[in-house]
Write a protein that binds this DNA or RNA. Structure first.
Lengths: 233, 233
DNA sequence: CGACGCTTTGACTATACTCAACCCGTGTGG
DNA sequence: CCACACGGGTTGAGTATAGTCAAAGCGTCG
């Protein structure tokens, strides 16, 4: 992996596009972006590689330019809880930027990824210089906290069928073009994200189809048949 | 409630003590603290009152000076998921300070509380003026996010007995003076925090006692008998 | 083609929830 | 001072949900 890191900043326009994708940066003007680019290293990671794992010191902010990253934790008996999936424009590593803590989760590459990296100290400096970045950063963090609390509430209270229904609806609301939704990960990972097992997820999806609320079109594609009923489960 | 709010800032020294309790403020010098005090309103809330509820607009940061506040969400079938408990020095309301969002949880007073309040816009201004505050605020938020992810991992993966064990151990680690721990809420609320029901919690505690890992001393007090075994559950 | 991992299905089991009754401690009012 | 109501807590019995284990189907990639 380490040999993949480009330190020469040769591909400025592409890196700039990377930054523009990120909500915390996309309001900056061209001059500020160029300045920030000087702080950034970019690297390519292949499927299966791990950006960080628990107990490693956290000193880098990672911004995903392309590909897909899975954030998850392991319990003592080696079961996996998926925290969330990262795609283009998402970032991670921030959890421990501010307290010299160790990582507590794994960040594993699912689809070959290009990742921009900023050193912890340089990012802190950046925040000092650009209050606007700080502001958007706070916004992102608090939104994430809210989402995680919601995810926890689902897992803690609702039965699996409700969680599946809620998840499908949230997927649909993201790209509300049609009533076809595409699951952006394996069912195994989705099961973990929803706090259940692949077997149970499979059965609950079958049950929802039985009730004519959805139609399983293909492995990753589902047609939502009765949105309102699905919403009420 | 509204008539309880003191807007006169008459009790400066007491308010200052309030601020000093809060990690995001406690590094400031006396001059800065005085400036901040001018922005603060303080109020008293009685048991049962609610600082905010879902769908209310969020425009205030609340800092707890004394008392106890329960943060929870309700599912559609009116079941309650406790997110966390707030005590002196904790703050809340920040979730939506940065995106004009509505609240998604309830903040209910469990024990009569004194609360300092800062208006959203004034707090934003404060952050601009004092990067150090921003820094500590980010630190708090990212720590909270990490804790919430951990809580979610427990609920999603472990069985109730493991969660109870983990909770007791985390309680013990906070005040590691003796092997007596005091549960800081009702068992009903603890059950919800751990993503289970009061009945199941009661049974799991009894089971742990059966195994000689703990001893139920009184309603809220537990003696940890075998720390290592408890840790390995 | 074969290997591997994901997915589904089936049978069984365990865990935890529900509902109900009862206990207990506290606070209120007669 | 006692009676009572109330909410929390515990216990029991029955049920439902979801997890486990095993086997077989399916898809993809070398």
């Amino acid at each position: 992996m380490i040999e993949d890191i480009k330190c020469d900043h040769g591909d400025l326009s592409s890196d700039q596009n990377c930054l523009m994708l990120v909500p915390i940066f996309n309001h900056l003007d061209s001059k500020d972006l160029k300045e920030i680019l000087l702080l950034i290293k970019s690297g390519k990671f292949q499927k299966g590689e791990v950006l960080y794992r628990p107990f490693e010191p956290a000193n880098t902010l990672y911004i995903i330019r392309s590909g897909k990253i899975k954030l998850y934790r392991l319990s003592e008996n080696a079961k996996e809880q998926v925290i969330r999936m990262l795609g283009p424009g998402d970032f991670t590593g921030e959890l421990n930027l501010f307290a010299d803590k160790k990582h507590e989760s794994y960040a594993e590459v699912l689809v070959d990824a290009e990742v921009c990296m900023i050193d912890k100290e340089e990012f802190k400096h950046l925040l000092n210089e650009h209050p606007a970045i700080t502001y958007h950063f706070l916004e992102s963090l608090s939104t994430r906290l809210s989402e995680t609390e919601q995810q926890m509430t689902w897992i803690g209270i609702e039965n699996v069928e409700s969680r599946v229904a809620s998840y499908l609806i949230s997927l649909h609301n993201q790209n509300s073009s049609s009533n076809l939704v595409r699951i952006p990960m394996t069912k195994k990972d989705l099961a973990s994200l929803l706090g259940t097992t692949p077997e149970t997820l499979s059965r609950r999806l079958a049950s929802l189809e039985q009730q004519n609320l959805i139609k399983l079109v293909s492995n990753r594609t589902i047609r939502i048949v009765d949105f309102d009923k699905l919403n009420r489960i």
